[in-house]
């Protein structure tokens, strides 16, 4: 979220009625920022510290070693497949829910949120039950010499599940807040559906869309629980970066584990930087086009489990 004032005192601090005594303010600042430093900053710093503990040479060797490279490639591949699929779904679902009225809309929205409340481990288990050797399609898959579980397709499916709602969740409130007037005008003026979407809706929601894509990409690359159940953890074949970190760590190869982990931590930091930038762009875009007071609520990060 972008604060509208940075170093000047906020409007609350200048108003007598909304101002606390200095000692209250400093106590709150000290307590909350210490908590923040202890629980968020220290773990982040320690990842990079541990990664470089044995020097740059070990670090570079750990991330360019063959199985590490294979893990990086696989992780990028998984995100490359699952994020676009969920993007298309998110746009379709948002178009349906925000631009149309129909019976059961509330139920559908709840179903779209469902993957957020399922434990990653259970996600892995569910795909085992459907596609595993003893699962529903197990015999059929063996017959046709197809492998889903302990292979890349299983990892992709599990990743799609855990990142399922991100784009939809981001777009639905945004498209609802923007209403239907502009699209209706476009249709009345003779635009077809795709033109309306492409030239009217998409420019209005592009920042929200980008935001959803970034978040689902971060989650797709970092997913651990669901993927660890279905992957089989075959080195060089079905080992994603988070799983590679686990294996190295359990082998007491801490420097290498933290070196690979630091790449994931960098990914997280880049995600946060882009996210902050997108929010900034989104709020200025929205203010410029809609001439309503800045409202962080519509464009603020919604809570993403």
């Amino acid at each position: 979220m972008i604060s509208r004032t940075s170093h000047r005192s906020t409007r609350f601090e200048r108003n007598l009625a909304t101002r606390e005594a200095p000692w209250v303010k400093w106590t709150l600042l000290t307590l909350s920022l210490s908590f923040f430093a202890l629980f968020l900053i220290l773990p982040l710093v320690s990842v990079f510290f541990e990664a470089l503990r044995k020097g740059w040479e070990v670090y570079l060797l750990s991330i360019t070693e063959e199985t590490a490279l294979a893990a990086i490639k696989l992780t990028v591949l998984i995100a490359f497949i699952s994020v676009p699929l969920n993007l298309v779904f998110g746009v379709a679902a948002a178009w349906l829910i925000a631009k149309h009225d129909f019976r059961g809309k509330q139920l559908l929205t709840t179903f779209i949120d469902l993957p957020f409340s399922v434990s990653p481990v259970i996600v892995g288990l569910m795909y085992m039950l459907v596609f595993g050797a003893n699962g529903w399609f197990g015999a059929w898959l063996v017959e046709h010499d197809l492998k889903v579980i302990f292979a890349v397709p299983g990892i992709v499916l599990a990743t799609i599940f855990v990142t399922f709602p991100f784009v939809a969740r981001e777009l639905i409130p945004l498209m609802q807040a923007q209403g239907r007037d502009e699209e209706e005008a476009a249709v009345v003026l003779g635009a077809n559906g795709w033109q309306t979407f492409w030239y009217v809706t998409l420019p209005n929601v592009k920042w929200g869309l980008l935001y959803g894509v970034i978040l689902s990409n971060a989650r797709a690359m970092g997913e651990f629980g669901a993927v660890s159940v279905v992957s089989g953890k075959i080195r060089g074949q079905t080992n994603t970066m988070p799983l590679h970190v686990e294996i190295l760590y359990n082998e007491y190869n801490f420097a290498a584990a933290f070196a690979v982990a630091s790449l994931l931590a960098l990914l997280a930091l880049v995600t946060l930087v882009i996210k902050t930038w997108v929010e900034h762009r989104a709020s200025s875009h929205f203010n410029a086009t809609h001439m309503v007071p800045a409202d962080v609520n519509t464009l603020s990060p919604r809570v993403m489990p």
Binding site: M1, I2, S3, L33, F36, L40, I41, P43, L44, S46, V47, E50, L215, A218, R219, M221, G222, E223, F224, G225, M241, P242, L243, V245, E246, Y249, A257, F258, A261, L264, A265, L267, A268, L269, T271, L272, V273, K275, T276, P301, M304
Partner: peptide, 19 residues
């Protein structure tokens, strides 16, 4: 601080775990 509050959403859980 505001941007980093979201770190637990963005940081893979395995990385958080070993850190």
């Amino acid at each position: 601080v505001d941007a980093l509050v979201d770190l637990p959403f963005a940081l893979p859980t395995a990385v958080a775990g070993i850190a």
